[in-house]
Design a protein around this nucleic acid. Structure first.
Lengths: 357, 357
DNA sequence: TTGTATGCGTTATCAC
DNA sequence: GTGATAACGCATACAA
């Protein structure tokens, strides 16, 4: 094998074969006009010289990079998150199938030290990567609040953009919506259908569109059944952190005091902790309290007693759909919003309420 | 806000200001030779015209892309894996701090349909992305076996490369080694130190460098204590899949038949399942059997009884170290191998063996 | 301090 | 079917 010191270009091939670079380019590109013999000679020379196309040059020339930017405002923990990780996986796979690559950007508050000074001054912060020709499109993993300024900036982006997980109706943007409202409604209805009346819900992200849509879903469920909405039976979504069982204990106590027979958890890991806390209190699930949750179980969790009843959705497919949204947008099709479709896979935590309740 | 239809280039700025593109380039780059007034005018014009640098052009010109390729042979599930995801997170963060981006490549068996025909013929498979000028360096998440052909190819790559998780000594490559051997030895010693003699281990990936290094670690532990190595007390690493409790049950039974008092699990999720299986058999941990494992608990798992004793390492920092390895290699420093350092964080699954054993 | 000129590797538009 | 030539946007060596 010859290890090329200098970069071999099509010009080198051209010289070796005795044609011009234009012909080499056409031969390599599979242009039908090129004579088969010439093409063979070109390929042979390319192989023996160890030619590798310079895609940086090609991309520059063609004005497109076959690269999708993934913007992650809220940091790198996304890489080991059950929810976003699966979306990412589906996105990556669909992109690969279409011969596109994913490049990750983490918008940073502080400008990097070694960035060229002048450029920073022009556009002080955020999303430069979507303007500078490095990507043909972008997927934005939105934090819980997308401000006006950010939205305005995103509207000016010269490449198609798909927003993920905003929990907001954002006109003019292609979106993959998390479906938080719809799934909450479905969970409440599932409990109502089994005879429950007093429900409680452990929420996430207070004072964000996520909380608002969750609450709306709950209210819609009450309205759909013609039940009167009692503020006391609707537990306000409070601060909660999956990593903090102490905080969850407090939230859970507040709910139990109200005599709930049905509990909705916002996330599967949250539900696992809640189930354990209930067990330690001697509260039997589902005999005394039914419990429902959302999302995939943490990886590797295969034995639980009782087995959680969870609403799930194919997040990998959701990631693929995200790619399709981007593809459609890049082909000029009208932007659209797709909502994740959550379906109940029933485990052992769902039952009618106790008789005396 | 002016939304530019046509791409604004430095030439446009030059015309607007009445200087040449060279001056604009220097002004934007913060070149000290440029007169402050000119610089101000250039920046003002750039701002009002809505100029955005074309980084595709800059990268092409400069022959470097400030982009790191991440090669993932074994697929997209990496994105929601507790182990690799954390390495990825650290890598991504260190890269971001150094103003580098990460681009992901999934080498595929079948060539993509829309790829230009001729280029595929030249180099049939694998790692093209490391040769074509798209990245300045690469991190290769190796599968369990790196073949000769692959290694030869990697040696020809014109950019620095760091290998991850090979469990092999690969001369000439910068590597972040998983430390599977060392951590296994440490676990066995921890059990020996508490009086255990008959150990069993649930393994992973049979017939791979991973298994070999694991077994070696075990043997070294026996030698270090001067204990004779009994094939029966060393349980061969067998097929095992975390997702499959049935298979784990069989492996576990084989070990228990030998009267082991200490069990080493290869992975934390595996350990959780094993603990549950032991519980269901009525075997008390740690009174009858001590159990040790490796790695971070699945995300969100906060309440377990007993709490697992796990060897852990800072994988985020490992990812950062990976970036440093790459950086050093790109600066021409000699390649080196760093091994992850696993330390025991003691939970409630470790105790001396029962008296009568 | 600024202008001029050249080149990076490739693709594309012309002729021939 | 192939060759000559221009162009993509930017950075830079050299000249002025």
């Amino acid at each position: 094998m010859v290890v090329p010191k200098k970069r071999i270009t099509i010009l080198d091939i051209a010289r070796a074969v005795g044609v011009t670079d234009g012909t080499v380019s056409r031969a390599l590109a599979g242009d039908a006009r090129v004579k088969p013999e010439t093409r063979e000679k070109v390929l042979a020379a390319a192989r023996s010289l160890g030619y590798r196309p310079n895609l940086a040059a090609r991309f520059f020339k063609q004005g497109q990079t076959r690269t999708i930017g993934v913007i992650m405002e809220f940091g790198y923990w996304l890489f080991y998150n059950q929810y976003f990780g699966r979306l990412l996986a589906g996105l990556a796979d669909a992109a690969r199938e279409d011969d596109r690559r994913l490049t990750f950007f983490f918008p940073q508050i502080e400008p990097s030290l070694d960035r060229v000074a002048g450029h920073d001054l022009i556009h002080p912060k955020g999303f430069e990567e979507l303007f500078d020709g490095r990507v043909d499109g972008a997927v934005v993993f939105a934090g819980q609040k997308l401000g006006e300024a950010t939205l305005n900036l995103l509207h000016e982006v010269p490449v198609p953009v798909v927003l993920l997980n905003t929990n907001q109706v954002l006109p003019g943007f292609a979106q993959l919506a998390s479906g938080a409202g719809a799934r909450t409604k479905a969970a409440a209805l599932a409990l109502f259908d089994r005879g429950h009346r007093k429900l409680g819900m452990l929420g996430l992200y207070p004072d964000t569109p996520y909380e608002w849509s969750t609450r709306l879903g709950l209210i819609e469920a009450y309205e759909a059944r013609g039940f009167e909405f009692h503020p006391k039976s609707l537990v306000p979504v409070g601060h909660w952190d999956v990593s903090n069982p102490e905080e969850l204990t407090l939230s859970l106590d507040k709910l139990l005091e109200q005599g709930i027979t049905g509990l909705i958890c916002s996330e599967s890991a949250q539900m696992i902790v809640a189930l354990e806390l209930l067990k330690r209190r001697g509260i039997r699930v589902p005999e005394q309290v039914s419990v429902l949750g959302f999302g995939p179980l943490p990886h590797g969790i295969k034995l639980l007693d009782p087995w959680p009843s969870l609403f799930n959705t194919d997040l990998i497919e959701g990631g693929r759909e995200t790619y399709r949204l981007l593809k459609d947008a890049s082909e000029g099709k009208p932007v659209r919003t797709v909502e994740l479709d959550w379906k109940l896979s029933e485990g052992q935590t769902l039952a009618p309420p106790p008789k005396e309740a």
